[in-house]
Computed example of a mutant assay.
Amino acid sequence: MERLLITGAAGQLGRVMRTKLAGLADTVRLADRAGLGTPADHEELVQCDLADAQAVNAMVAGCDGIVHLGGASTEGPFEGIVRGNISGLYNLFEAARANGRPRIVFASSNHTIDCYPQAERLGPDVPFRPDGLYAVSKCFGEALARMYFEKFGQETALVRIGSCTPEPTNHRMLSTWLSHEDFASLIEAVFRVPVLGCPVIWGASANDAGWWDNTHLGWLGWKPRDNAEHFRAGVAEAVPQPGSDKSIARFQGGAYVDNPIFKE
Rank of each mutant, 00 (worst) to 15 (best):
P166N: 06
K223V: 11
H171R: 10
I201G: 07
G218N: 11
G221W: 00
D182F: 12
F231M: 08
C164G: 11
G197F: 02
A206K: 13
V200E: 01
R192M: 00
P166W: 07
A189T: 04
P194G: 09
S175E: 13
E181H: 14
I201W: 11
W219T: 10
T169C: 03
H216Q: 12
V195K: 12
E167D: 08
W219H: 12
C198M: 04
I187A: 14
E150L: 13
R192C: 07
N207S: 03
T215L: 06
R225I: 08
E167M: 15
H216L: 06
H171V: 07
H230Q: 15
P199K: 09
R192T: 15
T169W: 08
A184C: 00
S205N: 03
E167S: 14
G203R: 05
L174P: 12
W177R: 12
A209F: 14
F152H: 15
E150I: 05
S185I: 03
K223D: 11
I201C: 10
I201E: 12
A204C: 14
H171E: 00
P199M: 02
V190A: 05
H180G: 00
W177P: 13
R160G: 08
S185Q: 10
R192K: 14
E229Y: 11
V195Q: 14
D208R: 14
E188S: 13
T156M: 09
E150H: 06
N170W: 03
S175V: 06
V190F: 05
